[in-house]
Each structure stands twice: as C-alpha cells, then as structure tokens.
Design a protein around this nucleic acid. Sequence first.
DNA 1: TGACATTTCAAATGAACATTTTAAAATGGT
DNA 2: ACCATTTTAAAATGTTCATTTGAAATGTCA
Lengths: 228, 228
Amino acid sequence: MSRTMIDSTDRDSTRKRLLEAAGEVFADHGFHAATIQLICQKAGANIAAVNYYFGSKENLYYETIKFGRSKTASLDSALPPELSTDDPEKALRQFIRAYLDALLSTERPKWLLRIMAREFIEPTPALDRFIEDVIQPWMGRLTQIVATFSPAKLPERQLNLIAQSVVGQCHFFFKCQAVILRLRGKDVKDGYDSSDIDEFEKHVTAFSIGGIRSLIGQTTADKIHRSN
Amino acid sequence: MSRTMIDSTDRDSTRKRLLEAAGEVFADHGFHAATIQLICQKAGANIAAVNYYFGSKENLYYETIKFGRSKTASLDSALPPELSTDDPEKALRQFIRAYLDALLSTERPKWLLRIMAREFIEPTPALDRFIEDVIQPWMGRLTQIVATFSPAKLPERQLNLIAQSVVGQCHFFFKCQAVILRLRGKDVKDGYDSSDIDEFEKHVTAFSIGGIRSLIGQTTADKIHRSN
DNA sequence: TGACATTTCAAATGAACATTTTAAAATGGT
DNA sequence: ACCATTTTAAAATGTTCATTTGAAATGTCA
C-alpha cells in the first residue's frame, strides 16, 4: 500500500528511536550478529516495527548510516572557519585537532564511526559513498595544508603519503583504543578523557611537523644522502 | 570441474584443511556470518566435519587463530638478526620494513591479521592473548629503538606515543587498504604490489625520523655515541 | 582375513531469526 | 462522533544454520 514516505520531520519518534537503537546495535555487533529483536527492544518498539518502518533489516542498516551521517558535523563545520592560510603549522594543528575530535569525541552519534570501521574491513556499498562524501574532502583539505609547507610544488603522490601519515596516527589512537588502554592497564570501557585528546593533539602535531619538514627538506633542498 | 583442490585433499589431513579454510572464511565474513557449510565446502569436507574435529564453531574459531599464529613468523624471526644497535635510523628502517612486511606481505596465512583486525573492533578473549604475545613484544622493541635516538632518557609516555605514531602509519596502509586503493582508482581486490611496500617503507621511515628528531630536539647531524 | 577404531557421509533435529500476517488500538481530519 | 489512515501488538511462517545422529566407508592391527 502507499506508504507515505514519512519524512523525518517530526512525529516519528518510534522511527527515530529505532535508528538510534540500530546505530548502537550495529556498531556493537555488526550487521549479521545484530538482531532485530534487540534493536526493537532497545527502541522500546515492537518486533514488527523495523519491517514496518524500513521494510527490511538491510534497508534499516543503510538508513541508519544515512541518519548518523546527517547528524554528524561536516568537514566545514568541524574545522574552524578561520583556518589559517599563512601559518602552515597552525593550520595543521587545527586540522589534527578537528580530526581527533571527530574520531574520539564522545558527543554525536559515536556509533557511526564504529560502523564505518567495520565497513573498512568488510566493505558494503555504503563505504563508497562515505569515502566520496567524507574521507575525500578531509584528505583533500589536509593535502592542501601539507602543500603549503613547501614553496615548491610537491608531487601529488608524496602529498598523499604525508597526509596518510598524519591521519594514520590519528586513526591508530581511535582504532586501537582497546589495545592502547589495555597496555596502560586501563579498562577499555572507560575510553579516553579530554586530557588524553589534548596530549594526542600536541604529540601528533609536533611529530608530523617534524616529519613534513624533514621530507620536504629532502625534496626541495636536495639534501645530502646520508651514509650508514 | 568437480574439485580443484583435490591434490591437497589426499595429502593434508582433513583437520588441517578445515583450519585453512576456516581462516579464510572467518577473515572474509567474520565469525557470525561465516557458515560451517562454506568452511567445509572450501575444505572439501563433510558438513559434520567441524563438529567432529572441533566440537563447535566457536572452538574452531579459537583453534583457527591458534593455528594461524603458530604459522606466523615471530618477532625475532621477522626482524633481521643483525638489527643495528649503533645506528638508530637503520634500526628503525629495519623495524618498519619488518612491520610492513608482517602487515602487508601476501605470504603466510594472510587471514590471521584480518581476523585480528575484526578483534580490534569486537574483542573476544583471543585479543588479550594476541596483545600480550604479539603486540607487546613488537611495541616494546620499537620503544627500545626509539629510545636510542636520544642520549637523554625520555619519559616512557613519550616513547610510547612515538612508537604509536610509527606503527599507526603502518596500520593505516593496512587497515585502510580499501580506501587508499579506491582513492587511487584501483580495485580493492588487487591489493598492493611489492613496489608499493617499498614506497611505504621509505616514506614512513623518513617521516618518522623527522618526527622523532624534531621531538627530541636533535638533528640528524648530531650523532651521539652512547656509552652503556 | 576379521574384529575394532577412526573417519566420512547424508539426513534429521531443533534453535534462532527475519519477515509476514492478522487484528486491535491509536490518531487525525471532517 | 465517524471514518480513514497510521501505528502497535502478538502470533504464524518460512528460512538459515549449527549441531546431532546413525550408518557406511576406510583404515589398523592381530
């Protein structure tokens, strides 16, 4: 029958609660291990609600990602509007801070990135859109920032590698959170606190600036080949 | 057409073929989505074989990880025995090469690390043992190497952060393989070739040396001989 | 060979689960 | 209040899958 395509305006609290619950459950257990029963239970809805509102479990999954992304700050809103253009180091620091916040901050639907982390291992069509809409812009912006470190034009490939080194560090603190906390003897459930993020920001920024300067020194100034 | 893997069917024991097949299937689909039917089919065994040899799917999972780890080169065999002690940069390069090889090389049961990548997101008891037996030694060794860059004794916390920056870069090329290849317009199934790994090694090493030197406030020119 | 253990096989069992169905209840417009 | 539409509720259906079963096949050793 004509299902009047409820637009997510208002009055759809059940639908919304289902999306929130689905986000957590999919993040916790993955698509297959997640059960509609648990999702509906968490949402305080009936077992038939998922198929009523979304038609299928699979469609709920994609709608959940779409929903999570709609609630996530975009690149432009995550980065400070006055991102420095004349001070590369400052711009890099601002970028890294924004990136770490996006990864590690506990606000916002924190389950979206955990779902996407699963997508990295086992891609579905949702990953392509995510790369295109989210990752590409972030990496593109970072590449721009890195480029400003050098007066000369660096090869695209090297800029990409540097950008990957920067975000790679950030990702490690995110993805290997469980490991890092266990190495520190802490409980995984605790997560990081804000001073941890501050520490990461300082460290990643300093480390990356050193790496970049050393690399573009080699490229532009034709540095001496070290003997070992 | 009937069965292409027959040559190994006769030679290898069914149990071993099940472990190999299970490794691939668990890595491809995760524990829940993996089916015993598919595992047995790939192993050329009957559907009842898993329960006959391993008792349950869950036990097969743990035995598979144990099996994969037994076939994986240890830290000591992965690192060159003559790991440099007087040249920190050379030692770091050797370490990074070994680490990238361990992550990205296509030899050996390549499925073990894919299974462990899933464990990072959704830990099971297997992760604790893996951290203790595999990750701790690697990180410990890297921390030692990093420490040799500085004549002064650096705080443990900073050494750990630096080590995490180094392996974080390597991990990014591994975990975000799908993304990097897609950004390059390549198909994910292709994977990296050996020249890619060479490129990563050079880049990560140079970037990290720059980062380390800048953090400890020392240029490559000041080379210090430490007396023990 | 013949007894005995081990391994393989096809079919059966039963549990978990997504999805459908049916009907009742709530809601909104007139 | 009345009717149409939307939402909730509980039970039913059918599928997928892990696990069990019992018999057949294969191997072992006297």
